[in-house]
């Protein structure tokens, strides 16, 4: 079985963001970028399935600017066999990404597609579900455990209040949650080897997909800052303040 894994280039999760002075967007100039953390978990899961013998090939795909090839090289260093880059602007909406991925799915015919549940820049949590709809596949979102058995995959999902397990008929779409696995770090020899692995580059036009925005970004603002309060010296003072000042007890 072939596994397709989608990765996104985003701001590094440790970086504190700045809003541009003209409020047009977040300022990404000279900011450290990295693979979206949930996508790292997706790559790790795909590689583990290959190591277990469930998967025969892992193909990584990224849609984004030219520089997203860095994240594809990372995926290759982590164990993906080959990569596909579809070059598009910084801001491609989930629906357009899902349409492009649906075309790649049609071409590659994977048994599983694994994506991160959300990207930490736009925080949309949509692309996997949209791809499942367009590819007419079942979806196992927010996965914390994945077990492939014959022509089915059992997916344990993190839902509000607990866990849900569903059985999906393959081919299927999975999106990763935090506890699915702990991604490995790429070793130097693997990083060197990754440079020689195949990386193909295409454009949205090659797939006949229109990537124009349906949602326009009118303004980006910094949220109202919360002011720090006071330190209290004891539990008694805390209870007194909560009762008599904040009136929440």
């Amino acid at each position: 079985m072939k596994i397709l894994v989608a990765v996104k280039r985003v701001i590094d999760y440790n970086v504190k963001i700045r809003v541009k002075a003209d409020h047009s967007d977040v300022d990404l100039t000279n900011v450290k970028m990295a693979m979206n953390p949930f996508c790292e978990i997706a790559v790790e899961e795909a590689v583990r399935l290959k190591e277990k013998g469930t998967a025969t090939e892992v193909v990584a795909v990224s849609i984004g600017p030219k520089a997203a090839q860095e994240q594809l090289r990372t995926a290759l260093a982590l164990g993906a066999d080959r990569a596909l880059h579809i070059e598009a602007g910084e801001r491609v909406e989930s629906l357009a990404v899902a349409k492009l991925l649906a075309k790649v799915v049609e071409e590659e015919q994977p048994g599983l597609v694994i994506l991160g549940k959300q990207a930490i820049d736009t925080d949309n949590n949509q692309t996997g579900q949209m791809l499942a709809a367009l590819a007419n596949m079942p979806q196992g979102t927010f996965a914390s455990e994945v077990v492939v058995e014959g022509d089915k995959v059992n997916v344990t999902r993190e839902i509000d209040g607990g866990l849900q397990t569903v059985a999906l008929t393959l081919p299927a779409i999975l999106t990763t949650d935090l506890r699915l696995n702990e991604p490995r770090y790429a070793k130097l020899p693997d990083i060197m080897k990754a440079k020689k692995k195949p990386l193909e580059s295409k454009s949205p036009a090659d797939y006949g997909v229109e990537v124009a925005s349906r949602v326009s970004l009118m303004k980006v603002e910094t949220p109202a800052e919360r002011k720090g309060g006071v330190k209290v010296a004891s539990v008694d003072e805390l209870i007194d303040k909560l009762k008599n000042e904040a009136k929440v007890l």
């Binding site: 809003v19 977040v26 925080d123 009118m218 303004k219 980006v220 603002e221």
Partner: peptide, 12 residues
């Protein structure tokens, strides 16, 4: 909210 709520986007 975008970027973990560190920015608020107005969208149309």
């Amino acid at each position: 909210p975008i970027y973990a709520g560190n920015a608020i986007a107005t969208v149309k």
